[in-house]
Nucleic acid binder design. Structure first.
Lengths: 348, 348
DNA sequence: TTTGGCACTCGGAAGGGTAGAGTGCTAATT
DNA sequence: AATTAGCACTCTACCCTTCCGAGTGCCAAA
């Protein structure tokens, strides 16, 4: 996509103007707002050319141009320069994120709220991917006959628990025994590597009958496997209704309808971040049609990765209209990510 | 509010018609759709009278009438007869709610989703009020020096945990000792009755220095007190956008903006349910202006109480447009509540 | 108390005219 | 070859007017 210099400037100017005014940009307005040293007719020619290249579109014949998805893409890839936040903005984010909470979920929720408020868009955070984290503790507590609680403490201080059914006959003492042997042989093991077999072998010296044991083992196994299920926090959906992009009720409805399936969003984010795990870009941008989810055609995703300890990471990001100030939003996300990392580091 | 019989019928008919058509109801349309044995002029007189009584309103001079908040109130209190769900509806709800999950949160979320889907409105569920439940188990687990996990199992099988900071010097053995004494003296005690004093006295025989002990006790105390914090699940916000009542973007925005503060909603529900704890009505209805929350003037709340064991209860309900089919929605909520109670009973 | 009749009101849909912003193209200019 | 001025053309958004019909309130008669 080799654009000559003036065409680059034109595209950049059109994106900038369109983003800030939400009005299709015409050749005349372009001349007025920017210091082009050529006439509007020349720009018209350039714009026609950019349109032929698929970077611009016309809503209708006698309107100005707006960027196409491809136009935004070019802008994001080559044209924009990423903002630096002002001191005030930085301080604002900083003060909202740093807090005395020491629960991962709360910290994430906090970051999500901050992100949504500062960008004005929908923000999201995924719980950390725990499959490569390891167990530090695992306790099975008897609650009442037939019912037990599996509590797992994972590296990086994440706690998971699940209530499971167990055979009625098992006594608290037996459960304690199982709990101890399981913990002993499993602690330090990455979740990924725990299988029914490792689990079963951890208790093979027990004198409890196999049939009873197996059920407990099975339940413990599902509890462990369930521990790395990813949750997603979405925040600020209502903010989308204030954007001119969704002033048509139909669009707004489709958008919020889609966002209400948060599993869908989570799956998508997970997918694109996995696909890009090798590229060590600080952030990922998906624009308009690039997003393969119905209802989000007019949106862009911007996501990035937070770190929690060495091996554990997760994603945060925003969903906004594709007509957004990419450079600003990206710098906001980057900063939030930065502060979030700091905050999570405090936990360990 | 003594209405003569015909006026009652007129009000009832107007509410019914308005709810189903969303068009102001005129005298002529009323005659056509219902078997009144009088003329439209008579109805006009009645309607004028009902308006004078504050039960009806006119959007403008030459339109039909619509019910006022007071009109809906009268309708709900005296006029409507509560529907019975069809077999099919019942089966539908039943199949969605009964499941093999055995976690209270999941069950509640499930019920909320069902409720929102069947009514088409926003639904909500509050986590159970646990202040009168009692502790059955309390464990403090050492995670790493300086950090411990407080796990509480409450009656009715609710589990809560919280990571707390503890003095770095404390050993796992000491923590275990504290954990045991605390559990011993606190289990069986209602959350309400646990104070710093009861907690402190439970460990007074320990040989651990007071200064260390106190910090642990304090952290445990906050963990316990935090356990009865009420969460609220809101579901189906986007559905409101499909309703004609919120076809104006401004209204929709205000509504969703308000709903996004879910603490506010939770607080309100809690309040009205507490205020009505004595009246053993199956459900509570709050209509339009009766709701003292900005942004919900065009909505109604319908809430009801679910039971979990003997002493523990919580609320579920819906938030819909005040122009809704009250009798239908009420029967839906009642049925969901019923099934939810069944489901929760299975847990114990 | 009910009814038929009638004048009046008002919102909403339909139609028409206009202004203005923007375009593409052509022919002249650099 | 690139740029520019000029011009005819296109289309939307907006405003204004008109008109229809549903609905009302009120009065006089039954």
């Amino acid at each position: 996509m080799a654009l000559d210099e003036r065409k680059s400037l034109v595209l950049q100017a059109i994106v900038d103007d369109y983003v800030s005014t939400y009005e299709p940009v015409g050749s005349k307005a372009l001349i007025e707002r920017h210091n082009f040293s050529v006439s509007s007719a020349t720009l018209r020619n350039d714009m026609a050319e950019l349109e032929r290249m698929g970077l611009l579109e016309k809503p209708h014949t006698s309107a100005g141009r707006i960027p196409s998805d491809k136009g935004y893409r070019e802008y994001v890839n080559s044209l924009m320069r990423v903002d630096v936040l002002t001191e005030a903005e930085q301080r604002d984010i900083e003060s909202r994120i740093s807090s005395s909470v020491n629960d991962v979920k709360d910290i994430l929720r906090n970051a999500t709220a901050t992100l949504s408020e500062t960008t004005g868009f929908v923000s999201l955070a995924m719980t950390p991917r725990l499959n490569s984290s390891y167990l530090t503790q695992l306790k099975i507590l008897m609650i009442e006959p037939g019912k037990a609680l599996v509590v797992m403490v994972l590296s990086a201080g994440v706690v998971k628990d699940k209530i499971v059914r167990i055979p009625n006959f098992l006594t608290g003492e037996q459960i304690r025994e199982i709990s101890n042997s399981v913990e002993k042989s499993l602690s330090g093991m990455p979740l990924d590597e725990i299988t029914m077999i490792t689990l079963a072998s951890s208790v093979k010296e027990s004198e409890i009958p196999d049939s009873l044991l197996n059920q407990v083992i099975y339940e413990a196994y599902t509890a462990i496997k369930q521990a790395d299920k990813l949750d997603v926090y979405l925040e600020g959906e209502h903010r989308m209704l204030s954007l001119p992009d969704f002033s048509e009720l139909g669009r707004a409805r489709d958008l919020l309808g889609t966002l209400s399936h948060d599993g869908m969003v989570a799956g998508y984010v997970n997918e694109i971040e996995k696909a890009a795990a090798d590229k060590k870009d600080a952030y990922m941008v998906r624009i308009g049609q690039e997003i393969a989810i119905e209802g989000l055609e007019d949106c862009s995703f911007i996501t990035t990765t937070y770190q929690m300890g060495d091996m554990i990471s997760g994603n945060i990001g925003i969903i906004g209209p594709k007509r957004m100030d990419y450079s600003k939003v990206i710098s906001q996300i980057n900063f939030v990510r930065h502060k979030l990392n700091d905050e999570l580091k405090k936990l360990t």
